[in-house]
Design a protein around this nucleic acid. Structure first.
Lengths: 111, 111
DNA sequence: GTCTAACTTAACCATGTGGTTAAGTGTATG
DNA sequence: CATACACTTAACCACATGGTTAAGTTAGAC
């Protein structure tokens, strides 16, 4: 939410541009912490392929990896998404006034 | 805002992953309609390079192009951004400090 | 008709991406 | 200690991306 370095936005959007990576993030959103092999299991691709995706997500700062013993636990780090969302937010005026009440709620929230 | 076709999200996020393209969108956000050469002028790259970027933006549905005479007017079409934002919205709980009241709002929402 | 401006397409190049298989590095476990 | 497990790295491949220069359309201007 802090440094709006452009290359960071680049990496964030690029990381989100792949369905496998979005699925990985979704998994980490619904389950707090998962091992690499656990994450890879549902996908029909090799483990190294998933590793590469995880590296992209790490480089974008969207996940963190913590090694304990021989297993590595991945966790969601949604911070960069907030920056992406903030960027998109500037264009909300262009997709017609009514947005879902959820966003409205957040933005009108006085705290 | 309707069809959450994954390949569409792919293209949207991919299109947003380039600073030149985000700058083009920013320009079209502050100025309603601009010709191709007008858009290309501020950038230190060749016109065909900008053309390619505009094609990516068109393919992602983020701009429309309308030919009048020999000039082509580009206009912002923010619709796909709304989809991207909706996707990101699911993760707001992971960075929002207002997590509790937000989830509360969603869960108690009678609709 | 000719010229020129506005845009597009073509051909090429370097680099990045998403996948593979095979080999390497640690860390439990028997 | 040997072996297997969890993850990583290496080497390779096909294809996409972002850039270039050069050539091709098409529509006004002279």
């Amino acid at each position: 939410m802090v440094k709006l370095d452009d290359t960071e936005l680049d990496r964030t959007f690029a990381a989100l541009a792949d369905p496998t990576r979005r699925a990985l993030l979704a998994r980490l959103g619904s389950q707090d912490g998962a091992s690499v092999s656990e994450l890879a299991e549902p996908f029909p691709v090799s483990l190294p392929a998933i590793l590469k995706h995880l590296n992209v997500l790490s480089d974008a700062g969207l996940i963190t990896r913590q090694k304990t013993g021989r297993t590595v636990t991945c966790r969601l780090n949604a911070g960069p998404m907030a920056d992406a969302m903030a960027w998109l937010d500037h264009y909300q005026q262009f997709w017609s006034t009514r947005l879902d009440r959820l966003t409205e709620f957040v933005e009108n929230d006085p705290s």
